[in-house]
């Protein structure tokens, strides 16, 4: 399974609406709440065995599934 597929699987497990969300800010739209944000961070940390610093928990990085994937790609490269 590719990294992207693994990320999508984590997101689907937490809130399947994330996968079909086509807007620009799912936190502001109410698709994603703060508990789910925490869950996403924790589960991605576990899935990829990395630590995601709190500074990355900003709306721009969790605006939709594409921004989450691109954040993770950046963190996995580091």
């Amino acid at each position: 399974m590719s990294a992207e597929e693994r990320i999508l699987k984590v997101l689907e497990g937490i809130n399947e609406k994330i996968l079909t969300y086509s807007g620009e800010n799912m936190m502001e739209d109410g698709t994603l709440d703060s508990f789910e944000l925490i869950e996403i961070v924790s589960q991605l940390e576990e899935e990829f065995d990395i630590e995601i610093d709190a500074e990355y928990a900003v709306i721009e990085n969790f605006a939709n599934k594409e921004t989450i994937i691109s954040l993770m790609k950046k963190l996995l490269k580091e």
């Binding site: 703060s34 924790s42 709190a54 500074e55």
Partner: peptide, 15 residues
């Protein structure tokens, strides 16, 4: 508490 949990869980006090 929901609002207090986010910075605690993500260890934002380090930043």
């Amino acid at each position: 508490p929901s609002a207090l949990i986010v910075p605690a869980k993500l260890h934002a006090f380090r930043n």
